[in-house]
């Protein structure tokens, strides 16, 4: 037996135009969106507030500046490209003036430089290290091997490009790329981070050269 369905009168605040819009926004959220009641983030809430975009865009510019100025790459060398990566980290080319500190833990890092051939046996470990890095995180594919498999492309054990395992933001061509090349790639990455979207979407990677 069912009891009578109670009639709840509509609250008075429904009459307000802004709150009706608020309600509409609430209804137009995707059905399977379980992790947020109303907004994707606090930033989005502030942004949709009248005049709030002034705050968020300024905050975005500031946060992006802070992010791009302290990109810490995890020290992850796979092959001969790692030698060039070490040279880039050392005093002659000195990426530390760009705010990059090679760090020995993925849990404190923002950037993974995949420097060398990724084998099928290494790919799950690479993915695990990438997943251990906290968001927001970026990946640079360094050298022909990481871009597409390079000279070992038809080898039985080689992954044909690290972008089959993790998302890549910057491709650095070369076999191996000299430190200047990697430095250019890191500057490209900083340029991408500077224009990091409020939605948190990644910028499109640069054109891949095999």
């Amino acid at each position: 037996m069912k009891g009578p369905i109670p009639e709840i009168p509509a609250p008075i605040w429904r009459n307000f135009k802004d709150l009706q819009e608020w309600e509409l926004l609430h209804k137009t959220r995707p059905v399977d969106d379980k992790h947020s009641v109303l907004f994707e983030s606090v930033t989005e809430g502030i942004h949709s507030f009248p005049g709030g975009f002034v705050v968020t865009t300024a905050a975005d510019a500031f946060l992006n500046w802070a992010r791009k100025s302290s990109v810490w790459p995890v020290t992850f060398g796979l092959a001969c490209c790692a030698i060039e990566m070490m040279a880039t980290f050392c005093s002659r080319f000195d990426v530390e003036r760009l705010g990059m500190v090679p760090w020995a833990s993925p849990r404190h890092s923002d950037l993974m430089i995949v420097s060398g051939t990724v084998t099928i046996k290494m790919a799950p470990m690479l993915l695990r290290i990438y997943e251990q890095m906290p968001d927001p995180k970026w990946a640079v594919s360094m050298g022909s091997c990481a871009n597409s498999g390079g000279p070992f492309r038809h080898g039985y054990h080689v992954v044909k490009g690290v972008d089959r395992v993790i998302p890549v933001d910057v491709y650095v061509p070369g076999c191996p790329p000299p430190p200047e090349s990697l430095l250019n790639g890191l500057l490209l990455l900083q340029e991408q981070i500077k224009h990091f979207k409020r939605t948190g979407q990644r910028a499109a990677p640069n054109e891949k050269v095999d």
């Binding site: 099928i120 046996k121 790919a123 038809h154 039985y156 054990h157 080689v158 992954v159 044909k160 089959r164 395992v165």
Partner: peptide, 25 residues
Amino acid sequence: LLEDTWEGHPLLKSYAVDTPHPPYR
């Protein structure tokens, strides 16, 4: 050298080049 779940013996001439190995190639 290869993982225990590997199928085939890759240095044989009968092992085809570019044999797919999901999910990575």
